[in-house]
Nucleic acid binder design. Structure first.
Length: 307
DNA sequence: AAGACGAAAGTGGTTGA
DNA sequence: TCAACAACTTTCGTCTT
C-alpha cells in the first residue's frame, strides 16, 4: 500500500483494503474508494464524458456509502478491441477513435452506474433478481442514450424502481429516494420516461405486495397479515382500489386488521411505515368500513375491551 | 395527554381541449 | 400549452379514550 494513504479521509478509519488488481483502496469502515487510478491508467474515471451535454455527474452525496460495507465494484464486460479492416487509414483511424471513445464512454458509465445500483440495491435489501433486472434495464437505457441530459443516479433509481414493480416487490418512491439520494419526483420522472422509451409494461402495483413488508416493520403477526390481505381482496371487489394510491390502501387494510386482532397500532405508526399520512389512512379506513360492513366487528371489539 | 376524526386549503401530476 | 380535476398532504380545531 502506498505511503501516503494510511487513514480514510472520510471516517479516519485505518481498516483499509488495497485491491491491487483494480488499483483501488477501499475503506472497510465506510466504503469510500480512496484511490482509483494508481495502476490502471486506462481508466479515467474522474473525467467526464467527451460527449457533449453530459456533465452533470455530481449527484448524491457519497455519505450514503457508509451504509454499504461490502462495496463491490465487480463489473464484467471488457470491451472488445475493434478490429476492423484497414485501408483508408486516416479516415478509418478517426472513425475508430470515435467508436472507441463512445464505447469506453458507455462502459465507463455502466461501471459507475452498476456500482451505484448495487449500493442502492443492497441498502434496500433487494433480491438478486431485481438487481439484475434493473441492471438490464439500465444497460438498455444507456445504449439508447436515454441517460443523456439526466443524472446517472436518477436513471439508476428509476431502473430499480421499475424492476421492483415488475418483480412484485415494490418499494415506495420514498424509500428509493432515501436510498439513492435522488428526489422523489425526479425518480418518478425518469422512471416514466425510461419505461415508456423501452416499452416496459407498467402494471399498477398491487397493494397486497406491500403488506408483508409493512406488517413486519410494525411487528404484526401472520394472522393479522393474512386478514389484511382478505380485506384487500374484498376492497378490490368493491372497487375501492382503483385510482387510489396502493400504499394508502395497504396501510388502511393493515390498520383495520390490526384493530380486529387486538394488535392495535396508532394511525401515526401505520402511516409512517407506509409513507402516507394519517388522513389518507382515515379516508381509506372509512371507505373500508362503509363498503365492507366491518362496523359491527369493530364495535364488538370495543365492547369486548370495556369489560 | 395522546390518539382519532374531519374540514379546509394547498401541492404535484394527469388529462383533455 | 393551459385549465380542470382527483388524489394526497398539511394544518388545525374538536372530540374521545
Amino acid at each position: 500500500m502506498p505511503e501516503l494513504v494510511k487513514k480514510c479521509p472520510e471516517c479516519s478509519g485505518i481498516n483499509l483494503n488495497w485491491n491491487k488488481d483494480r488499483g483501488e483502496i477501499i475503506c472497510r469502515d465506510c466504503g469510500l474508494v480512496i484511490e482509483e487510478k494508481m495502476v490502471d491508467f486506462t481508466q479515467e474515471w474522474r473525467e467526464f464524458d467527451s460527449e457533449d451535454g453530459e456533465r452533470r455527474r455530481a449527484g448524491a452525496p457519497m455519505t450514503y456509502t457508509q451504509y454499504d460495507h461490502g462495496l463491490g465494484t465487480e463489473v464484467g464486460q471488457k470491451a472488445d478491441l475493434f478490429k476492423l479492416g484497414g485501408k483508408e487509414r486516416n479516415k478509418f483511424f478517426r472513425l475508430r477513435k470515435w467508436q472507441y471513445r463512445i464505447s469506453t464512454a458507455i462502459e465507463r458509465n455502466l461501471k459507475l452506474a452498476l456500482a451505484e445500483l448495487k449500493r442502492v440495491s443492497s441498502f434496500l435489501k433487494l433480491p438478486k433478481s431485481v438487481e439484475e433486472e434493473s441492471a438490464r434495464i439500465y444497460t438498455l437505457a444507456v445504449q439508447r442514450g436515454l441517460v443523456r441530459g439526466r443524472s446517472m443516479e436518477s436513471v439508476v433509481a428509476g431502473a430499480l424502481y421499475a424492476a421492483c414493480r415488475r418483480h412484485d416487490v415494490p418499494r415506495t418512491l420514498d424509500e428509493l429516494s432515501e436510498a439513492s439520494g435522488i428526489e422523489k419526483k425526479e425518480i418518478g420522472r425518469t422512471y416514466r420516461f425510461v419505461t415508456r422509451e423501452l416499452g416496459i409494461s407498467i402494471l399498477p402495483s398491487n397493494p397486497a405486495d406491500y403488506i408483508a413488508r409493512f406488517a413486519s416493520s410494525l411487528k404484526l403477526n401472520a394472522e393479522t397479515q393474512s386478514k389484511s390481505i382478505e380485506i384487500l381482496e374484498q376492497a378490490q371487489k368493491a372497487e375501492l382500489t382503483s385510482g387510489r394510491g396502493p400504499t394508502g390502501i395497504a396501510a388502511a387494510a393493515l390498520y383495520v386488521s390490526a384493530l380486529l386482532h387486538g394488535e392495535k397500532r396508532t394511525q401515526r405508526e401505520v402511516a409512517d411505515v407506509a409513507g402516507v399520512t394519517e388522513v389518507t389512512i382515515r379516508n381509506r379506513y372509512k371507505e373500508l368500513l362503509d363498503e365492507l360492513k366491518l362496523e359491527k366487528e369493530i364495535k364488538k371489539k370495543k365492547k369486548g375491551k370495556k369489560r
